[in-house]
């Protein structure tokens, strides 16, 4: 004897299948176009892809169950114990559905891109350098001893790594801001420039003058140089040789 299909159950299965498959396919799309790293750490990429496969499998299972519910298997014969009645009220189910469907809609409706100047401006960040005061220029004398370096790089137990790294940068003929230690380099530069009245990284004018910014993090405020990493062959010696030149820098 055929029973009437449980349309509520079928709709619930199909809705869940659409949401799960949508998320899984969106991850697959991001992976295919190379934009997955905009959202997650590269270390998590494989796990995210596995999760996408799992979501698609679950979605396929839900579709299969909805088809079974539509085509005959309407009663398992074990009564309420084997039933799959939705838990909670319809309002609760709606909330749960929106909770997943809304971010999914945002995924597909918003562009996959890093933060740009226009978006940053809406958030009150100035990335273009407009309306800034002109910088001061000076060429202070380089310090001569370790004692002088210690004076220029004051630190406590928490900031000692940055002070040590600042001393290392100070000895460099030029500062290269590369992917590696990118955050630490900028933090050190900013930290000692603002902490010290004399400025800790600006006295060695002829040595610290040149900066190479290979990449600007989308989360950092310096995105005016919205840059990307060059290929390996262009990151090292050839670029360094091209960049090396004597320059004067800054003062307070």
């Amino acid at each position: 004897m055929n029973e009437r299909p449980n349309y509520s159950l079928i709709a619930r299965h199909l809705t869940r299948a659409v949401v799960l498959a949508g998320i899984g396919l969106y991850i697959a799309r991001l992976s295919a176009i190379g934009s997955l790293s905009l959202y997650i750490s590269p270390r998590m990429t494989p796990y995210t892809k596995y999760a996408a496969v799992g979501l698609c499998l679950i979605a396929a299972t839900l579709v299969y169950r909805s088809l079974k519910a539509w085509d005959g298997e309407r009663s398992s014969g074990c009564g309420d114990a084997c039933g799959h009645a939705p838990a909670g009220s319809w309002l609760r189910q709606l909330r749960a559905g929106v909770l997943f469907a809304l971010p999914l809609a945002l995924f597909f409706l918003t562009p996959d891109t890093t933060i740009g100047s226009a978006m940053a401006a809406q958030k009150g960040m100035k990335l273009s350098g407009v309306n800034v005061a002109p910088p001061n220029q000076a060429t202070p004398e380089p310090p001569a001893s370790d004692a002088e370096l210690d004076r220029l790089f004051p630190h406590d137990s928490l900031t000692k790594p940055y002070a040590d790294y600042g001393k290392t940068l100070y000895a460099e003929p030029e500062i290269e801001i590369a992917d590696r230690r990118y955050l630490e380099t900028l933090t050190t530069l900013s930290f000692f420039r603002t902490r010290s009245r004399d400025g800790a990284l600006r006295y060695r004018a002829s040595s610290i003058g040149t900066i190479r910014s290979e990449k600007v993090n989308s989360c950092s405020a310096g995105s005016r140089f919205s840059a990307a990493r060059p290929t390996r062959s262009r990151t090292a010696s050839s670029s360094n040789r091209r960049m090396r030149r004597s320059m004067r820098t800054i003062s307070g």
Partner: peptide
């Protein structure tokens, strides 16, 4: 890739680092 000088400037009364770009190369 951008190269230039480290500088210091003031934005809205706050002293910040500024990179004075002298050269920029598309990569």
């Amino acid at each position: 890739t951008v190269s230039g000088m480290l500088a210091k400037t003031t934005v809205d009364g706050v002293e910040v680092l500024m990179l004075q770009a002298d050269d920029a190369t598309e990569i």
